[in-house]
């Protein structure tokens, strides 16, 4: 096995770490192939201060790639914005460490603006509503950490390995390389997959993809290549990808990738 990429490690600092909503995020992070470490200051220790010292210690000890930090700790009035105090301490000691804050809307934009005003302009801090779906949390963390993985899984069965420059599909019988997708076609798929990974709804404009086409009519040859990519993957998986599947054309603007439905 080649040198394995280190897994992203996320530290979760939330007094509701046993609640379903946080557990669902933890589970989703693990599915993503990330390591989720939950702070637990110990039995009976529930105050904001206890979480603060446990979190700061864990950052030194575990060296996480990102922190998911709640704003509110418990029902005590003094701990209503304890998370913001913890944030200031983290940013002071580790200015490059990405932190995603779990907020409630009512503490929202104005407080966000106030907090941002006290941080350095390039601080890696973002805010997300606590009711956000686990998918949304993962997307924000992906962008905040900003590192694309070497292998991008599109849905459950297609994998783009950007280091080895191959695409393979997962089947019941094992993993199979799709040999037809190489060179320019691989570059097109890699471009679409990388954008999809970081920002799933975002369109890749024709201009960025036409670099990987040649001939007098770059757009027409791009269209042919995309058709071929869809056919090759479809053949490998034993399905047919139509106009609204896998790679879709947005009239006159570009293409985007859509994960195939299970």
């Amino acid at each position: 096995m080649a040198t394995k990429q280190r897994r992203n490690k996320i530290l979760i600092v939330d007094d509701e770490w046993q609640a379903g909503i946080v557990k669902a995020v933890t589970r989703r992070l693990e599915q993503e192939g990330w390591e989720a470490v939950t702070i637990n200051p110990g039995p009976g220790r529930r105050s904001g201060d206890e979480f603060e010292s446990a979190a700061l210690f864990a950052i030194e000890e575990q060296r996480p790639d990102g922190v998911l930090l709640d704003v509110r700790f418990g029902e005590h009035r003094d701990d209503r914005f304890k998370g913001l105090e913890i944030l200031q301490k983290i940013v002071a000691d580790h200015p490059r460490l990405p932190v995603l804050m779990f907020t409630q809307y009512a503490q929202g934009p104005e407080r966000e603006t106030a907090v941002r005003g006290t941080l350095r302009w390039d601080a890696q801090v973002d805010f997300i509503d606590k009711l956000a779906s686990p998918e949304e949390v993962v997307l924000r963390l992906r962008r905040l950490i900003g590192r694309s993985p070497e292998t991008i899984a599109i849905g459950d069965r297609i994998v783009v390995d950007t280091r080895a420059q191959v695409v393979y599909v997962k089947k019941d019988s094992g993993q199979e390389t799709v040999n037809d997708i190489q060179g320019m076609k691989f570059e097109i798929l890699r471009e679409l997959a990388a954008t999809w990974f970081r920002s799933p709804g975002e369109l890749v404009p024709f201009g960025r993809l036409e670099r990987y086409s040649e001939g007098e009519d770059a757009r027409a040859s791009l269209r042919v290549r995309i058709r071929e990519i869809k056919d090759s993957l479809g053949e490998a998986l034993g399905v047919r990808f139509g106009a609204d599947d896998l790679i879709i054309n947005i009239r006159g603007h570009g293409y985007r990738l859509v994960a195939p439905r299970a």
Partner: peptide, 18 residues
């Protein structure tokens, strides 16, 4: 779009932006 794409795709809809 991050917030709505998961909801939309459950309903068989796609949100695209540029």
């Amino acid at each position: 779009v991050d917030r709505y794409s998961a909801v939309a795709s459950e309903a068989g809809k796609e949100v695209t932006w540029w």
